[in-house]
């Protein structure tokens, strides 16, 4: 595991931990969905849990929501133990799962009203809360229609609204924007930011570095049930490079040679794809950017285009572990420290 940086306590005073996870293990047969995960979410902050498909993100969220019991380890949320105080814990949390869990045959309003009643709100309050949240999530017009008729984005928003009914102190969002179009994704991001501004603690899983960067203060990167890095998003960005330089050579055949040249000149993190015809280099600083351009220009490669973008999960993994996601086999000899 790579410790990117010790997280400084930027408020100076003691900050409580809303979520404390220690050594959580969950195996399915021979699949180690969670293999000893530790993480902490400070109260009032957003922790991003970044990992590829199958990393164990959903399993983690399900353990923390009392939906499944871990094989080993402890997890305390809002001061309540997942195993010993599940009922109290459930009053503390809100969950928006990876797959929408709204009742398709009920209207948006009825979905929210039902949850209000199950959370012991008096009838009038449950009605008021449902109306208020529909308004807030721009669903007022669709309030009386059955959720079956909602678009993917509307369902997501209804799901988010449902998890907000009880004003949870800790909110879990499991890949809240996967499968959404960019506009809807931005709407969801805005909502999450609003909840955070109101003091909600959020644990958010995602496959996108961009999303983690947008929403999270700290980041825990997991792969195959193990934490492989954690720290402040800003520190991880400094390490991975906030952005990736994309170079499109005039002749795609030059790609391997370009990557080799960069490696020879100390830039080991360059990757390229023959399919897209792009060379990608995570940029960690101004000098590095200058150096890359200098090397490529100096060797006389014909360059058709240059662009920058936020790094992908693959590039993040490469920077942290020195190996890409796909062949992240647990072979220790290959897991060399990246050259920063």
């Amino acid at each position: 595991m790579t410790r990117i940086a010790t997280a400084p306590n930027d408020r100076g005073a003691a900050v409580g931990n809303a979520v404390e996870v220690r050594g959580i293990v969950k195996h399915y047969g021979t699949t180690k969905a969670l293999d000893g995960v530790d993480l902490t979410v400070k109260e009032g902050t957003v922790l991003g849990v970044l990992g590829p498909n199958g990393a164990g993100k959903t399993t983690l969220v399900r353990v923390l929501s009392t939906l499944i019991k871990p094989d080993a380890g402890t997890a305390v949320v809002g001061g309540y133990d997942v195993l010993r105080q599940p009922k109290q814990l459930r009053r503390t949390i809100g969950l928006t799962g990876q797959y929408a869990s709204v009742d398709e045959l009920l209207s948006g309003y009825e979905n929210l009203y039902l949850i209000g009643r199950l959370l012991d709100l008096p009838r009038r309050e449950a009605r008021a809360r449902a109306t208020e949240l529909l308004e807030r999530f721009s669903l007022t017009e669709a309030a009386k229609r059955t959720a079956k008729t909602y678009s993917g984005g509307m369902r997501r928003r209804l799901d988010l609204a449902a998890s907000m009914i009880g004003r949870p102190r800790v909110l879990y969002l499991d890949e809240p924007t996967t499968g959404l179009d960019p506009r809807t994704r931005n709407e969801v991001w805005d909502e999450v930011q609003r909840m955070v501004a109101e003091g909600t603690t959020v644990l958010l899983t995602t496959q996108y570095m961009e999303e983690a960067e947008q929403l999270a203060n700290e980041l825990t990167v997991i792969d195959r049930g193990k934490v492989i890095a954690n720290g402040l998003v800003s520190d991880l960005k400094a390490k991975v490079g906030g952005q990736t330089l994309q170079v499109r050579p005039a002749r795609p055949a030059d790609l391997p040679e370009m990557a080799r040249c960069l490696r020879e000149n100390g830039v080991s993190t360059a990757t390229y794809s023959a399919d897209t015809g792009l060379l990608a280099v995570p940029i960690t600083g101004e000098e590095q950017l200058t150096a890359v351009i200098g090397v490529l220009g100096g060797r006389g490669f014909a360059i058709a285009g240059i662009d920058t973008k936020v790094p992908s999960l693959d590039e993040v993994f490469l920077a942290i572990t020195g190996k890409p996601v796909a062949d992240a086999e647990p072979v220790p000899s290959l897991a060399k420290e990246p050259v920063a």
Partner: peptide
């Protein structure tokens, strides 16, 4: 990093009644 943990907000018991 502090290890202080969020105190339970409500001390109600877990029975539903």
């Amino acid at each position: 990093m502090t290890t202080a943990t969020l105190a339970p907000a409500r001390a109600e018991d877990s029975r539903i009644g």
